[in-house]
Design a protein around this nucleic acid. Structure first.
Ligand SMILES: [Mn+2]
Ligand SMILES: [Mn+2]
Ligand SMILES: [Mn+2]
Ligand SMILES: [Mn+2]
Lengths: 224, 224
DNA sequence: ACATATTTTTAGACTTATCTAAAAATATGT
DNA sequence: ACATATTTTTAGATAAGTCTAAAAATATGT
């Protein structure tokens, strides 16, 4: 049995990790298949292989969860992914909607020294361009303390810290609105019938849909 | 037929390109097998596939050569390889003997913008850490104008510009001797029986074997 | 509870890249 | 020229990852 994992195996571990964050119990075969744009039968095969390697716990028909070992690997791949995203945006003039697919490739490059040196070169960033926390060398990941914009009330002031949906289309839409990480937002009012918000962003007033407010992580400013 | 090439296919094209530089005629199946540490039968299979894709010209038992298309791809992979090597040495504190295996992985990352931006970030380097020329965006590659140290006569002064053998062991050996790119060398004399050279390097006098002088590219200083 | 819908697994096939062993072609030496 | 050695190709197998279609298990609705 090969100790070195393939890119495919790493992608499965990463998918299971991400799905585990929201799913309370074990992750379903179908959920993994959908996330990786593959078929359930392929997932079953791969999950058996990962179980043989003691990277996941798996009981037929009962879903799958990561072992400590599997979680460690998943988090380290995510660490590489997010460090490369920072590199691409900060040094190579990429915008936040362009980096994901390239980081999907770079995250699989194997070299512990490379990751370590990249981290140093980037001056130990704590978050990627989408506001997601970068796990440290030991695989510890800061949990989100920020809150969804949709959970705040009219009158609140807040600062945008991250996006829940990192899809290209959403990120480009935010660019169009002028909303970026660090933007200060004041909620003027919330429309009761569709939950859209009228907000103040810089010197502009605009209305944004519930769909958007549900996908923006913000830090609430203290009232007094 | 898939347009996107696999890493394996790219590695074959690169190997054929490199072997073509020294081999006058077509490259042999065995030569490719040895370079890629695989078997001749595997090479035959892959070469057929590359021929189907019009990336190589191949006639049974007659060896293989790159088409213009195939050469273009090979050179672009080499371009990426060498740019990444520059990045690793100049920005991530890697030494010239550590970068090859990592660049072997990075060279396969697909993104034209990434290569372009990396080139800009590195300020358009012309040579990699081993003195090898970096092909430009159009795939043009500067041909070696430098000469082998072994071809010079006693009394000559020269500057080290590159290494022919980029193996880890050779590079570390050079490190031990204190020979690096840019080092000035004066040839004091050449031992007739084994072709070893007594050289002056900085303020030190040392003797280096024919094996070494055959693997160092140098630029000869003009006499007067 | 039980019929039906949904999810998951199995069975069998395909592709890519590899290998070993045998056959075919080419090269070499006298 | 011809026997022998070397190189190259073919034939058949294997492993990873994927797919479709069918079977098995689980979940759901009344
Ligand atoms: Mn990936
Ligand atoms: Mn990200
Ligand atoms: Mn490679
Ligand atoms: Mn190099």
């Amino acid at each position: 049995m090969n100790l070195e994992l393939s890119q495919t195996e790493e992608n499965y571990l990463k998918a299971i990790f991400t799905l585990s964050l929201t799913a309370s119990k074990a992750v379903s075969t179908n959920a993994i298949a959908e996330k990786l744009e593959t078929k359930a039968s392929s997932v079953t095969d791969m999950v058996k292989k990962l179980a043989d390697k003691k990277l996941v716990d798996y009981k037929k028909y009962q879903g799958v969860s990561l072992t400590e070992n599997g979680k460690g690997i998943a988090v380290r791949v995510i660490r590489k992914h997010r460090l490369w995203e920072v590199f691409l945006v900060k040094h190579l003039d990429f915008s936040w909607d362009e980096v994901h697919e390239i980081a999907e490739q770079l995250e699989h490059v194997k070299s512990i020294k490379l990751t370590k040196e990249l981290d140093r070169f980037l001056e130990y960033p704590t978050h990627d361009p989408h506001g997601d926390p970068i796990p440290d060398e030991n695989g510890n990941i800061a949990h989100h303390t920020d809150v969804m914009l949709s959970s705040l009330q009219a009158g609140s002031n807040c600062v945008v810290l991250g996006v829940k949906d990192s899809s290209k289309s959403f990120l480009k839409y935010l660019d169009g609105l002028g909303i970026k990480l660090g933007s200060s937002i004041k909620i003027i009012n919330i429309e009761v019938f569709d939950n859209s918000m009228k907000i103040e962003l810089g010197d502009r007033i605009m209305s944004i849909s519930h769909q958007i407010t549900k996908n923006l992580f913000v830090k609430k400013e203290l009232e007094c």
